[in-house]
């Protein structure tokens, strides 16, 4: 579904992605973790072309990202992306946020899109917030709207870029619960997060990155109980301590 083959990327002189090779199967849930600055956000942003890659191949849903022949707008419509900072449209209500892309990109009738949007917002526990503006919602609620916004496009893949990092602690679980339910429905997911509880629960694989490269990857069970490298051990001891 998503395949990196020898992908490299530089920011100026900084080599931020080093020879990444990674393959994600349909219905697979992969958690990417690693210290800050390890390139994990950059990696996930490459998948829908928010970042461009320098060399190597990146094939998503059978199409080559960055190839002039690939219509990125069409490809992005198939990929949901959840941002750390939510990025809800502040001038639109929760329901309008959810239905904007279905109406304009998928060309679905407004009434159909709104029905689907209401259903999804209800599913993420926001049945009473259809007409609320983002500024009237808590962080956790905003992030759930953002997830519903992606789901309303009926995407084939969902990408999550540190979806709970900007949240107050008491709001993290409400967002994770929604993500777990999405995973359990068989969505292909790539999730950058440090929430190891989430990884244990639904991830098939954990990928550990450091300094722009993939250091190790394995099942959550293996990774947490028997980390193979010093760097992953050091990382785990830091995040599990608190």
């Amino acid at each position: 579904m998503i395949e990196f083959r020898g992908v490299n990327k530089w920011f100026g002189a900084l080599h931020v992605l080093k020879d990444i090779t990674l393959s994600i199967e349909p219905r697979e849930v992969v958690v990417i973790c690693g210290p800050s600055g390890s390139g994990k956000s950059t990696l996930i942003r490459c998948v829908n072309g928010l970042e461009t890659t320098k060399d190597g191949d990146l094939i998503v849903d059978g199409q080559r990202v960055g190839d002039p022949a690939t219509n990125m707008t069409d490809l992005r419509a198939e990929i949901g992306f959840v941002f750390q900072s939510f990025n809800l449209y502040p001038h639109k209500t929760a329901l309008e946020n959810v239905t904007l892309a279905p109406i304009h990109v998928r060309k679905i009738a407004r009434s159909t899109a709104e029905a689907a949007g209401r259903e999804l917002l209800a599913r993420v526990g926001l049945a009473d917030k259809f007409n609320a503006y983002p500024s009237e919602l808590s962080g956790g609620q905003q992030q759930r709207v953002a997830i519903a916004r992606c789901l309303c496009m009926r995407p084939k893949i969902m990408l999550f870029d540190e979806p709970t990092s900007a949240l107050d602690p008491e709001m993290i679980s409400e967002v994770l619960d929604v993500m777990v339910s999405v995973a359990e429905e068989g969505m292909t997911m790539m999730v950058v997060t440090h929430e190891m509880g989430f990884a244990r629960k639904v991830a098939q694989r954990v990928v550990f990155m450091d300094a722009g490269g993939i250091v190790e990857s394995g099942t959550p069970e293996d990774f947490f109980s028997h980390p193979k490298t010093d760097r992953s051990r050091a990382f785990l001891s830091k995040i599990l301590r608190h």
Binding site: T73, R76, V105
Partner: peptide, 18 residues
């Protein structure tokens, strides 16, 4: 307008005009 807004619109497949 924050960059994240444009990125969110890009990510959901909106055209430049949209």
């Amino acid at each position: 307008v924050p960059n994240g807004q444009v990125e969110a619109a890009l990510a959901s497949g909106l055209s430049r005009r949209q």
